[in-house]
Amino acid sequence: MKAFLGMGLLGSNFVKAMLRKGDKVQVWNRTTSKAKALEVDGAKAFDNIIDAVKGVDVIHLTLKDDDTVNEILEAASTGFKPGVMIIDHTTTSAKGAVERTATWKAKGFTYLHAPVFMGPSNALESSGYMLVSGNQEVIGSVTPELSKMTGKLLNFGPEEGKASGIKLIGNLFLLSLTAGLSDTLALAKALDISPADVATLFESWNPGAGMPARFNKIIAGDFSKPSWELNMARKDAGLMMSAANEEGMTLTLIPAIAAAMDSWIAKGHGTDDWSVIAKDNL
């Protein structure tokens, strides 16, 4: 028997997938109707969080943030079975994950942070990626459980909180990517180019395919053999900003990138590869 706390889009679909695999699941949500809606799928919903966790061996969470996780676990704790396993899929701070691991261990319970790169459809289909790190014996004991929930389980080793940090790094990239796409659409609008035409470009030319090679070039730290000189990249950034400004369009990322480029050009790196702007972060 297991419990699942937090019936948002992700949590609800995790529960549906568990039920389809034959698991018995007790569910709770602050908004009770979201938990009750899963009874038609076979879940047992509870109004009281303490009742929801009574008798279960594993408790899964998908909540909002560190404070919410701490609040909900504390509220439920009087119903915990001795030695219960708490598996938290919430995106939280690395510090919070480390602190919770120690706090609940001291109380006789096991807490494991297992954040995900999964949307609601992934949760339902058991696809996507789940991340873990920390006590390898603990991780080994729940690997069969977690592997059923995801397409791939990524173990980042014994360091507590590393999975949390990796999750935030991945989300940062997704935020940056979306902001970059927003700038792309803004420049296209300024140049009177349709989104459909931009989509046609990306159907043939996929810049994302070169991301691993670009990243490896950056972390190698050699910027002396440019594929795109910083001076030339800065010139193009200027053209982008001018075209957008002329049509009253706002670019989100490019002005900040241009400012970083200017700083590195002033340091004498204008003929280096433009990715030198990442050098200080190595």
Rank of each mutant, 00 (worst) to 15 (best):
D47V: 11
G83N: 03
A102Y: 00
K81D: 06
G42F: 05
M85R: 01
K105Y: 12
I59E: 02
I50G: 01
K54Y: 01
L38M: 11
D66M: 09
G108D: 09
P115K: 12
R20Q: 15
P82G: 00
G42W: 05
D41C: 11
A97R: 03
I87D: 05
D67C: 02
V69D: 05
V25A: 05
Q26H: 15
V27A: 05
A76T: 01
A43M: 06
H60V: 00
T68F: 04
I72H: 03
M85D: 00
F109E: 11
A106L: 07
R100P: 09
V69M: 06
I86H: 03
N70K: 14
T90S: 13
T78N: 14
P115L: 14
A114R: 03
V84K: 02
I59L: 06
T103N: 13
A97V: 10
D65F: 04
T103E: 15
S93E: 09
D57G: 12
A76N: 04
L19G: 02
T31P: 11
V25C: 06
V69P: 06
K54N: 10
D67Q: 14
Q26L: 11
V15H: 08
K34M: 13
A114P: 01
G22S: 02
D51R: 09
K16D: 08
Q26T: 02
T78S: 15
T62V: 12
K64R: 14
K54W: 05
G96D: 05
K16I: 10
T31G: 10
T110D: 11
K44A: 10
K81H: 01
T32L: 15
A43F: 06
P115A: 12
K16R: 15
Y111E: 03
I86K: 03
T90H: 09
R20G: 15
F14T: 02
M85S: 00
K107I: 10
G83Q: 03
G79A: 04
I49T: 06
T101A: 15
V40H: 12
V40W: 07
L63I: 07
V53F: 02
